[in-house]
Amino acid sequence: MIVGFIDEYRQVYGVESICRALSAHGVQIAPRTYRKARHRLPSARDIADAHLENALRDLRDKPEAMYGCRKMTRYLRRHGHDVAFCTVDRLMRELGMNGAVRGRKQRTTIPAKDGVRAADKLNRDFTATAPNLLWVADFTYVSTWTGWAYVAFVFDAYSRAIVGWTAASSKTTALVSKALNMAVWRRDHYGHPVEPGLIFHTDAGRAIHISEIH
């Protein structure tokens, strides 16, 4: 790619000038390296990649362009391409080809019916001067062979350490509350009990004092 870039602009700026500019921006290449690369024969991998890229580009406006990496690999093999899944995955990412995703998109934050979000008491300032003054919580999800898995976690803004966590197969209130209960128990168990005044910040700007939790 760098050789192609220099080829495109060398008649205007000169090879040496372009190499100096690229090196100044962190792309280290010498004029001698560029000239050697221009006369080097393409490798077997480069040739195979070029053939495969052409096959992928030919599918741009066809239904097969919606295939994911695994299905695309099987499709290419049926059409005579001896190719590995990792190669198809790499080239599809380089070409910006993404397979269609079936099913409903997962949502982790669902607004209230009135559409009003809780005020952010922290004003996006997630710093703390000592442990157990500010905890931040959130949860995420990951697709598994048996369905969606959800993981909630609580971390201390001072140490950036995860102090509580939990995992479940559904996104219920207990998913987050159990992570908070675990954090409180662990801090007490290891001799750092939570004192009144700790702020517990969750998604969508919700922040409460630990004394509000029953």
Rank of each mutant, 00 (worst) to 15 (best):
L91K: 04
R93Q: 01
E94Y: 07
M72G: 01
M92F: 01
M66V: 10
D82T: 07
N98W: 15
H79W: 03
R93C: 07
H79Y: 01
R70T: 08
V101K: 03
Y67Q: 10
H79Q: 03
K62T: 11
G96T: 00
G99L: 00
R70A: 13
T73C: 10
M97N: 10
G68K: 00
G96F: 02
D61V: 00
A84V: 07
H79G: 00
Y67G: 06
V101L: 07
L56N: 07
E64L: 05
A65N: 10
D82I: 11
N98T: 12
E94K: 12
R77Q: 08
H79D: 00
E64F: 06
K62V: 08
D58L: 08
C86Q: 14
M66R: 14
V88C: 07
V83P: 13
L95C: 05
G80M: 00
M72T: 00
R78N: 15
P63M: 09
E64W: 06
A84Q: 13
G96W: 06
G80N: 07
Y67S: 11
R77L: 01
M72N: 00
A65Q: 12
R70L: 12
V83M: 08
H79P: 00
E64T: 07
R70V: 08
C69T: 15
A100P: 11
L95F: 04
A100I: 11
A84Y: 09
G68F: 00
R70E: 12
R93S: 07
K71L: 13
M72L: 07
M97V: 13
E94A: 11
L91R: 03
V83S: 05
L76D: 04
C69P: 15
V88A: 06
L59S: 11
V83T: 08
A65T: 14
R78H: 13
H81E: 06
M92L: 02
L76M: 10
D82S: 13
R78V: 06
R77C: 01
R70D: 09
D89P: 05
V83W: 09
K62G: 12
F85S: 14
G80I: 00
R90H: 06
L56Y: 01
K62L: 14
M97E: 07
N98Q: 15
M66G: 14
A65V: 09
P63Y: 05
V88Q: 06
G80C: 02
R78Q: 15
H79C: 00
C69I: 12
R93W: 07
A100H: 09
K71E: 11
L56D: 05
D61T: 08
R57Y: 03
P63E: 03
R74M: 13
L59G: 12
L59Q: 09
R70C: 06
L59D: 10
Y67K: 11
G96S: 05
Y75N: 11
C86S: 14
D58N: 08
K62W: 08
R70W: 10
R60E: 12
V88S: 04
L91Q: 01
A100K: 13
R77E: 05
G99F: 00
